[in-house]
């Protein structure tokens, strides 16, 4: 039950390329990929001034809350959320019902273009995410924690 989401380097690179392409094609400021439990998978673009850990957690909370709302009215999920700000806006969408794609964009582009491009990359990302989920179900390698000792754990708290 308590299975992990695992990201490997190959998939990470593929996902990073797709997100960077999306950012360029939409002239967005930044693109983030976040797992549904609130862990940041990757960020690309101008994000150095942002607290990305908080952004990831709040986005996941947001998706979880709107998912609850969807359920209330008999929908499986709301796959797209859009938050419009005075200068910057957020386009948030679900990929394979498992990870969250966030595009942060300003006045240089339009929500229409972002939505169009997001829809295109969603298929590519879905494929990779589904492969990752499959891998996580049938892990080939042992847990990287299999070798750790009680001492290793104690050192963390010393």
């Amino acid at each position: 039950m308590n299975s992990s989401m695992v990201i490997y380097e190959d998939e990470f690179r593929q996902i990073a390329d797709i997100c960077e392409r999306l950012r360029r094609d939409t002239s967005a400021k930044a693109v983030f990929l976040i797992d549904k439990d609130g862990q940041l998978i990757l960020a690309t673009g101008q994000y150095a001034h942002l607290d990305t850990t908080a952004l990831a957690s709040l986005t996941a909370g947001n998706i979880a809350a709107t998912g609850g709302l969807a359920d209330l009215i008999g929908e499986r999920e709301f796959s797209i959320l859009f938050h419009e700000g005075e200068h910057d806006s957020l386009h948030i969408s679900l990929v394979a019902s498992q990870v969250i794609l966030v595009v942060m964009f300003g006045e240089e582009t339009s929500v229409g273009l972002v939505r169009l491009r997001v829809r295109k990359v969603n298929e590519e990302l879905t494929k990779i995410v589904q492969e990752l989920m499959q891998k996580a179900k049938n892990p080939g390698a042992d847990s990287p924690f299999a070798e750790i000792s009680d001492e290793d754990i104690d050192i963390l708290f010393s």
């Binding site: 989401m5 990470f12 862990q39």
Partner: peptide, 15 residues
């Protein structure tokens, strides 16, 4: 569900 990222060598757990 813990989260392991081999690309950034990170593991995250939720309490």
């Amino acid at each position: 569900m813990s989260f392991i990222n081999y690309a950034s060598r990170e593991i995250s757990c939720k309490i």
